[in-house]
C-alpha cells in the first residue's frame, strides 16, 4: 500500500482481495468491464469507472500444468496448475483450479470462486462446479 499518495487502481484491487472480495472495474461511459486494474478504460480511455464485485462464477478458457518450478517458491508444489478463467461479468483472470481430475480437459468447464489463504495473502482460486 502506498501511504504517501492516493491509492492506485491495483492497490484498491489488492485491498479488496484482502477483504475476501474479488473486484473488477467497469467503465461508466461505455460499460466495458476489465481486469487487471488500470487508470483508463482500455476500450474508450475514459477515466470514469466503478469498482464492482464479481459474482464468482466463471468459465475456464485454458489451463496448464507446471512440471518445472521456474519460481523457487513452487519447487515443492510441482506439478501444479495455472488457469485462465472468464468471469461471467466479462473480465479474464489468471488463477489456480483447486482440483483437476486426472486426464480431464477442463476447457469450457464452469468454476466458482473460492478464496484460499496462501503465499501470505487471500488468493482468489476457483473450483470446478
Amino acid at each position: 500500500m502506498n501511504s504517501a499518495g492516493p491509492q492506485t487502481p491495483q492497490e484498491a484491487h489488492v485491498a479488496a482481495l484482502e477483504e475476501g472480495r474479488l473486484t473488477f472495474q467497469r467503465c461508466s461511459d461505455c460499460g466495458h468491464a476489465w481486469l487487471p486494474a488500470r487508470h483508463e478504460c482500455p476500450a474508450c480511455w475514459s477515466t470514469n469507472h466503478d469498482r464492482q464485485e464479481a459474482s464468482g462464477r466463471a468459465t475456464v478458457v485454458s489451463w496448464v500444468v507446471f512440471h518445472v518450478a521456474f519460481d523457487p517458491r513452487f519447487k515443492d508444489r510441482v506439478p501444479y496448475n495455472v488457469a485462465l478463467v472468464d468471469l461471467d461479468e466479462g473480465p479474464r483472470m489468471t488463477t489456480n483450479i483447486i482440483e483437476i481430475p486426472e486426464g480431464e480437459d477442463i476447457v469450457g468447464r464452469r468454476v466458482a470462486l473460492c478464496f484460499q489463504e496462501d503465499m501470505g495473502r487471500k488468493l482468489p482460486r476457483f473450483e470446478l462446479t
Binding site: 487487471p36 521456474f70 519460481d71 513452487f74 489468471t94 488463477t95 489456480n96 488468493l123
Partner: peptide, 12 residues
C-alpha cells in the same frame, strides 16, 4: 514470474 499472478505460480 509475471506480476500479480506470480503468487499463482504463473511464470516463464
Amino acid at each position: 514470474s509475471w506480476g500479480d499472478a506470480a503468487d499463482f505460480g504463473w511464470s516463464s
